[in-house]
Design a protein around this nucleic acid. Structure first.
Lengths: 233, 233
DNA sequence: CAGTGGTCTAGACCACCTC
DNA sequence: AGGTGGTCTAGACCACTGA
């Protein structure tokens, strides 16, 4: 017999969730007020508040002052996936990870990049091309542009052994990112790097990263054919 | 001058976050205890707790009893994207949404589906094929298998006007799902439905859905060429 | 303007963990 | 065994917003 001595907010949260999922409180229902629920569960209002706040975060209910708490009619569910680090993905699949720096150059930001990152035209950026391998087979081609104004230290970085993604994650963690991905057909360069043939469908991910609102880097990560992104929520 | 009368947990959270991002508290640093921070900020410990709990949820710090709160060394950032409903995606882009049911059949679950969903072999499932259009151009081909044991009401559902995804979302919201997506080359059937040519790279998304642990449905959503998934943040 | 959620407090006890 | 975060309480005031 596992019995909570005191009413935990877990108990309240789970019971309310159960009532929503069991349609005891169907979609659109107005829930009792926090005070009422506190009385029903025999706990403090703060405890109910904590429970309902979590359910709101998870998208089960919607809360508004004065109106009260309502079961969401069209729950907007979100899926999450980890922002992947090639090495970690490979190692999680028990693969042998290898990295290689293919190209490194300091250039003036091309126009498309300036507009993508919101950089003044002509800003000096570091252009990088690297390969990530799993069991000696191409896993991901990483092409990246880094604003040297945002990360001056990167000019001196030794990227022969550690990939730029990993370097940046230790140098400037806690960045904001925007990610988009889609399917493209491999062009001749991609086909060569990824050991596949021209036109093969591959997943390409584009990441734009900011640090405290300042644009840092834009990366285009192209994966070997057959690569899949998985999520859970 | 905007000044908080009382110390809000926002203020504490933002200040701690600032210290982490500014490397005042570098990665790995052990933060002061809740009580100490409460004293520093002149607030109750509960307020500090709320602030730190949020930072922990967001992946900035790691909390352990007795050990204390530590700045995360390798922050695992997660990206999120909305679980899309074709109609909503199209309408958000100011497109004209149209839906068509192509095929509907009740069949015995094929072996691959039984194993995918964990259903007893031979379970009766509803097999659906539908098209979603944006501005009369193919947007998404939806192929779906629904366990009638899990959603008996679906046998009577009128799916001629509302797509199965949308029907299911109102019939049984609050499900759990697993999503995987990748790039594939269109086969002849896909090419025809999506008005493209064989071999064109397209994004295919596979969703498996459970309701309270019970398998409900498996869907394969294939998008028109050029479709991209974007993260919310 | 009145009702509801949002937040804060001061104190308390507890559970877990490292020492 | 003792320190740290986890949680709860009872009461209070605040801020938003719908009637």
């Amino acid at each position: 017999m596992k019995q909570q001595k005191r009413t935990s907010f877990h108990a309240v949260r789970d019971e309310v969730k159960r009532r929503i999922e069991s349609r005891i409180w169907p979609q659109g229902t107005l829930l009792p007020t926090e005070s009422d629920l506190a009385e029903e569960f025999g706990c403090a209002r703060a405890t109910v508040n904590r429970a309902l706040r979590e359910l709101a975060e998870q998208g089960f209910v919607e809360r508004k002052r004065k109106s009260g708490t309502r079961v969401k009619t069209a729950p907007v569910r979100q899926a999450r996936f980890e922002i992947s680090l090639a090495r970690r993905v490979v190692e999680e699949q028990n693969g042998d990870y290898r990295y290689a720096l293919v190209e490194r150059a300091e250039i003036a930001a091309p126009a498309w990049l300036s507009s993508q990152l919101g950089l003044p035209p002509g800003t000096r950026v570091l252009h990088l091309l690297c390969m990530h391998y799993a069991d000696n087979r191409p896993f991901q081609l990483e092409e990246r542009w880094v604003s040297l104004a945002a990360v001056p230290a990167m000019e001196q970085a030794d990227l022969s052994r550690i990939g730029p993604t990993e370097w940046l994650m230790t140098a400037i963690p806690f960045t904001d990112a925007e990610i988009a991905f889609g399917a493209i057909g491999a062009d001749s360069r991609l086909a060569e790097f990824l050991s596949t043939s021209v036109g093969m469908p591959v997943m390409q991910m584009e990441r734009t990263t900011w640090l405290k609102g300042q644009p840092v880097t834009f990366a285009r990560l192209t994966h070997h054919p057959g690569f899949r992104v998985r999520t859970a929520y």
